[in-house]
Amino acid sequence: MTSLATGVRQLPRGRHGLPREQVVASQRDRILLAMAEAMTEHGYVGTSVAVILKGAGVSRETFYEQFRSKQDCFEAAYERAVRLLLDRIRAAIPHSAPIESDRLAGILGAYLEGLAAEPAYARLFLVEVYAVGSKAVVRRANLQESFAAMIAEVLGARTEEQHFACRTLTAAISSMVTARIAVDDLDGLRALREPLLNLVRRSGALYGEAVR
């Protein structure tokens, strides 16, 4: 996953000859990153638009040209972070590898490394999302279902019981990673990979037909 912080920098002052689209995109990237970083320190409720503007280095007028409100800005940051994380996970799945080993390891590794690489955005959609409102919480639930479906496919879940087991596993993973992101324990976050893999490998066909 391309780091959301990579290449996000303030444009030079004065005349720079850049296309309007590039200027707007740069401003948007800086605003989204500034919001995620501000929420790491202040939480969603304590993050004001003024704090976001200071972090992004943009004017209030520029902010409201792109976003209707702080919540609208949060939703845009959330959607981008989720999309890039899912892209990273999908790209990490070695489709030609044995399903029960390398593919699952690829998913978990990409997921955990993706969160660790962008802790501000990880906190945004794992922790602060609950302070935003029911609409944001529904989006988080949908993300979790997408991850559960991905795990079920990789593990060869066929029965309703196996699909339920995969959803249960996903909920447990979500709870554990959220706890570690909340206290900024990135080493502990990465350390979850092997115990989780071992748990699945010892489970037989509990999660799917590919695990035997």
Rank of each mutant, 00 (worst) to 15 (best):
A120W: 00
V8Y: 04
E79Y: 03
R9Y: 06
L53C: 08
S26C: 07
L143H: 05
L155Y: 03
D72L: 01
Q71F: 03
E160Q: 12
H16G: 11
T2K: 14
I99P: 09
V211F: 03
T6M: 13
I151Q: 01
R202F: 11
S174A: 15
K70Q: 08
A122P: 01
A117N: 04
R190I: 09
S3D: 14
A157W: 03
R20Q: 15
G57R: 01
V177K: 01
A117W: 00
A5T: 13
P12F: 08
V211Y: 00
H163N: 12
G106Q: 07
A165Q: 07
Q10S: 10
A171C: 09
E61Y: 13
R201E: 07
S146D: 13
F147E: 05
I52A: 12
Q66K: 12
S175L: 15
A171Q: 13
L84S: 06
G46D: 11
L199K: 06
L124A: 07
Q66D: 11
G133Y: 05
S3L: 15
I173H: 05
E160G: 13
Q162D: 08
Q10R: 15
R80M: 13
E41W: 08
Q22E: 14
G14W: 02
A36F: 01
L143I: 04
V8C: 12
S26N: 10
F164I: 12
L53H: 07
